[in-house]
Nucleic acid binder design. Structure first.
Lengths: 201, 201
DNA sequence: GAATTATTCAACCAATCAGTTGAATTATGC
DNA sequence: GCATAATTCAACTGATTGGTTGAATAATTC
């Protein structure tokens, strides 16, 4: 018998890999069981249903990327410095979890309403604060005039996009895995620099 | 009997809607048949298999967004002007086909190798040319020094991201559909402006 | 050591799925 | 009008799927 949660962890890891790769609809319980080297009924013993197993995996993914974004954007200090910190820390988080952005975008299509609501509840206040920060920075002449919502989309998108679009960008640029990994390693610096130039008055 | 391709078109439109919404794995042939108001066996009569039906839908989606990107980036002229043209025309294409970017990113996960290869074969030459254009523009002092691969990811990502991440951005920004549609309507101008500022020497 | 609880298992199940079958209906060509 | 081809249909099929069942095994408690 297992008494230290090892089987549950194994199931979770296998499910995470399968759901990240295939999404909810494409992942198969039989495949997850095989990956975890268990009998399939044990998935149900530990997690009851496919839906609940998926929820556990999704929750972990969201917790990996949403609270840090909120925390960083909610910090005090000059806007430009904050955006640079965001780029460095957020790209770092994405590099540690390269499959999560696409996984979440994948889930966005399956469940746009629920995730929109979740985003509103969790990130809404800090996004609103971001708007205020941008407006103040413009007023004080720290940055040139810019629409805050567009800027927010830019900041997040510049960090996220090279991860979600990797196969297409990598193929189009004729890069191997090492070269593209190298590009991702310089991504944070590039984004910070790009934003600095884009926003200077 | 149908002699003007009406049934085939109806099937295709229904399949497009279903595949855009649910992806390959989540879409159901019975649902597509219901949407097209036909008997399910007719899907097979016209398109043989689910895979072939999906391929037809995917091909149309790719043809809507990849050749225009290649054409615009392959044009002659100063780089900055070209990037502005790209932003305006590409965002316009995305606005006419708002579901396609996410659909393609969705498919990227299912089939990274095939799409990476397709991107390399079709967009590879024009991306390589883009690299040359950037390097020349830097040399001639038209733009500040910048890594061409990063810039390419930025240009495409700034156009695409607000479409693929819509539910999350919209929810986080506390916007209704009309407000977000309004934001997307100004997106092309914003991207062009943002790039101009980001790249000026 | 016995009773209870937790874990694991193989076999099984009903529902769903993509696809097939063969007949009926409709259209076309002579 | 008949023969042929194209289209459409309802019923059917085997495989797959997520989940259940009940027994066996292992661990824990007293």
């Amino acid at each position: 018998m297992n008494k230290d949660g090892d089987t549950e962890d194994r199931i979770f890891e296998a499910a995470q890999a399968a759901f990240h790769e295939h999404g909810f609809d494409g992942a198969r319980m039989a495949d997850i069981a095989r990956r975890a080297s268990i009998n399939q009924s044990m998935l149900h013993y530990y997690f009851r249903t496919k839906e609940q197993l998926f929820d556990a995996v999704f929750r972990k993914a969201i917790l990996a990327v949403l609270p840090p974004a909120i925390a960083i954007l909610g910090e005090d200090g000059p806007l430009l410095a904050k955006l640079e910190r965001f780029a460095h820390r957020y790209v770092g988080i994405l590099q540690a979890n390269p499959h999560i952005p696409a996984f979440i975008l994948f889930e966005l299509r399956r469940n746009p309403e629920a995730i929109g609501r979740l985003a509103g509840e969790t990130a809404g206040p800090v996004f609103a604060r971001f708007r205020g920060d941008v407006e103040r920075a413009v007023r004080e002449g720290d940055i040139r005039p810019i629409e805050p919502s567009h800027l927010l989309a830019n900041v997040v998108g510049l960090c996220v996009f090279p991860f979600v679009a990797r196969p297409m960008l990598q193929g189009g640029l004729g890069m191997g895995n090492e070269a593209y990994d190298g590009l991702l390693r310089t991504r944070a610096d590039h984004v910070a620099d790009f934003l600095r130039h884009a926003l200077r008055p």
